[in-house]
């Protein structure tokens, strides 16, 4: 191959490392990938750390400290294409729970010397700070979807990923609806597909780790589960506030219930 391999950078902000690990979890594809993409910067995997510019930057994690506000702008400047990967990068992640609380109080709960801790009051998605070319949702992301993103990038196309709900995946897999047949709460109707209806297949209601689907209607689902499944306001807020708590559709609905109380 004489053509220059496009240069890839993988960045970490506030996160658990799981989404970048998905790249190393591509055991069957990693060496093939290396033939087509030059992994120029990926701290989790290499000590090469080559400077930019980069053709593609995968960004994991949310923005939660003052330094990160500057760093993400520099990354945008150095990258032709920026893809946010995972719930932290697309909606602020689990740590966006701080957005609904008093951050000083939280710091005091965890650290005895809170003055040493530099943190922002909100944990926010990458798209709130820079233009993002594509968002890959999920906590964690699906490695199949990650490969689709990389493949599409190499082909110069947009990734083709489902924007429908987990419900559709249940139907495709022939999984009996937990909500209708057993009266159990499930976020499937408002959650984007991609996991292959994982939780319902394991006899568990979807807890929304892939985030809101296109035109997600959490309010309608909220009215349904409260009436049909006798879910309390407090529990409904808890359902919405987990790994995608900061996603605007979920956040708006959870805040509505807090106001109602």
């Amino acid at each position: 191959m004489t053509r220059r391999r496009p240069r890839l950078a993988v960045w970490k902000f506030t996160s658990c490392d799981g989404c970048q690990l998905s790249l190393l979890d591509c055991e069957d594809e990693l060496l093939t990938l290396d033939r087509h993409i030059d992994i120029a910067y990926f701290m989790e995997a290499t000590s090469r750390a080559e400077p930019g510019p980069y053709d593609l930057s995968l960004v994991e994690g949310s923005i939660s400290t003052p330094e990160q506000l500057e760093q993400i702008v520099r990354i945008r400047d150095q990258s032709r294409v920026v893809v946010a990967i995972g719930a932290c990068a697309t909606s602020g992640g689990l740590q966006a729970l701080r957005n609904f609380a008093d951050i000083d109080e939280m710091t005091r709960v965890v650290y005895a010397s809170p003055a040493h801790i530099q943190t922002l009051s909100c944990s926010t998605p990458i798209s709130q700070h820079i233009a993002v070319d594509f968002e890959l949702q999920g906590c964690p992301i699906s490695k199949t979807q990650l490969l689709e993103v990389l493949g599409a990038f190499l082909r110069g196309e947009r990734p083709v990923l489902p924007t429908y709900s987990v419900c559709v995946e249940c139907k495709l897999q022939g999984v009996l609806c937990l909500s209708v047949s057993q009266g159990r709460t499930c976020l499937g109707p408002i959650t984007q597909a991609g996991c292959g209806a994982l939780c319902p297949r394991y006899d568990r209601g979807c807890f929304g780790c892939y985030g809101p689907k296109e035109l997600s209607q959490p309010r309608a689902l909220g009215e349904f589960v409260k009436a049909q499944h006798k879910v309390s306001d407090r529990d409904w807020v808890r359902w919405l506030r987990s790994y995608q708590a900061g996603a605007s559709e979920f956040a708006k609905e959870s805040e509505r219930h807090e106001k109602d109380r």
């Binding site: 506030t14 658990c16 799981g18 989404c19 990160q68 701080r98 709960v109 964690p140 808890r238």
Partner: peptide
């Protein structure tokens, strides 16, 4: 690594949520 305040998030959550919430501390050894 920026702080993520897990012990604060856990306060008030149901005991049944702890395995899933704490697994998000680390993607390598969830």
């Amino acid at each position: 690594e920026p702080p993520r305040f897990f012990e604060a998030f856990l306060q008030g959550r149901d005991f049944s949520e702890a395995p899933d919430i704490t697994s998000r501390i680390c993607g390598i050894c969830p």
